[in-house]
Computed example of a mutant assay.
Amino acid sequence: MLTASEEPATTGGRVTLIGGGPGVEDLLTVRAKQALREADVVLYDRLGPYRTLPQLAPGAELIDVGKTPGHHPVSQAEIEKLMVAKAREGKHVVRLKGGDPFVFGRGGEEVNTCLAEGIPVTTVPGISSSIAVPAAAGIPVTYRGVAHAFTVISGHQPLTDTEFEALAKLGGTIVVLMGIGTLPQLTSGLRKAGLASSVPVAIVEKGYSPEQRTTVTTLGDAVTAAGRARCASPAVVVIGEVVRQHRDFSATLEHVLAQPLGAS
């Protein structure tokens, strides 16, 4: 017979972390859709495909735990406590995130919380916005003869001088997620580290939505251009020569997706 300390943490409860991709339902994976159909509870935020959740997760309890820049009505600790509590009730809890859970999604923290509590947890990868959103704007993150590597960084916190120097020396494409708020520090830091002011920059807002918009500028003028265009989150910032590969920066989303890469 099991002692109290040896009792299973749950009686059928489990957690599935799902990457929702750039926020549209048809870019969810087959496995993600299956997990949503089986969910008893879905904890979601604004960057996942939440608008069709009533159809994707019929009968599930839907809980908005979304965060916006500078405003976290439900803290990360509270999200994890809620996730554990619902699983302990024997429910299948789905944590739906934008992009991929392990790309600045704090998925690793949530997995470790579940494991520490003895709750079974699985993950379903998602299409990272670091690749998908530039692609939606017709911008490849790598291109033969132009960029053979790309680096993805978070714009939540300013980088150190050492990090800026490493980025500038590495070359290739720099993709910044959540970088609107720290754009002044980002651009000045890269320029100070030796990146030319003429390097092209694209700011892609609200990728894969009807409001998608791309602002094209240079490293030296990015802050002014972003202010003039009133760029706002969510947005992906692409820095590098690959920005030149797409010729029609005013194209609608439908045009971008319908045309071969680089077509005007």
Rank of each mutant, 00 (worst) to 15 (best):
R14I: 07
I139D: 03
Y208F: 13
S5V: 15
E61W: 08
E89N: 10
R31T: 14
D64F: 15
V199P: 05
H156F: 07
A225T: 08
S233D: 12
A32P: 06
V152F: 04
S130P: 06
Q245I: 02
D26P: 02
E163V: 06
I174P: 05
G126A: 10
F164A: 07
K33I: 10
R230P: 07
G220T: 10
L17E: 06
G108D: 03
Q259I: 00
G181D: 11
L195C: 06
R31G: 03
T160K: 14
L167E: 03
P184M: 13
T16D: 04
R228L: 10
I63T: 09
L253Q: 00
I18C: 04
Y44I: 14
P140Y: 07
I239V: 15
F104G: 09
K206E: 12
P210W: 15
P125V: 07
E163C: 06
E163P: 04
F150K: 05
S250Q: 11
T68S: 14
G12R: 02
L2Y: 08
F164T: 07
L115H: 07
Q212N: 00
T29W: 01
L219R: 15
A225R: 14
T11E: 13
P140A: 04
H92E: 15
D161F: 04
A85C: 13
V84K: 12
G108Q: 10
V24Q: 03
P140G: 11
S198V: 07
G220K: 13
E117K: 12
V93G: 14
S264L: 12
E110V: 06
T173F: 14
G220Q: 11
P49Q: 01
A85L: 15
A166L: 12
G105L: 09
F164N: 15
Q55L: 07
V111P: 06
Y143F: 14
G126I: 10
S5P: 04
D26E: 11
H255S: 13
L257M: 12
G66D: 12
G59F: 13
T10D: 02
V201W: 10
V103N: 03
T52M: 13
C231N: 09
L177D: 05
L27F: 00
D248P: 00
A226P: 01
G19Q: 00
K169H: 12
R144V: 14
T224C: 06
P234F: 10
P234R: 05
V42K: 00
I63S: 01
V243C: 05
P134T: 13
A4M: 10
Y143D: 09
D45P: 08
T173M: 10
H156E: 06
E117P: 15
D100A: 02
G59N: 01
K33H: 01
Q55D: 15
L159G: 12
G12W: 04
V65Y: 13
R37G: 03
L186N: 00
P134F: 10
A136Q: 11
G90N: 15
A77S: 13
G220N: 11
D26C: 05
A35N: 02
Y50W: 15
G189R: 13
I153F: 02
V236R: 03
P69S: 00
L28N: 01
T3M: 03
G105Y: 09
A137H: 11
A77K: 13
L261Q: 05
A147R: 09
P140Q: 08
P22W: 01
V15N: 00
T160V: 02
G194Y: 05
A229F: 12
V242N: 03
P73N: 05
A251T: 02
T122C: 11
G66C: 14
K206F: 05
S250M: 02
S250R: 11
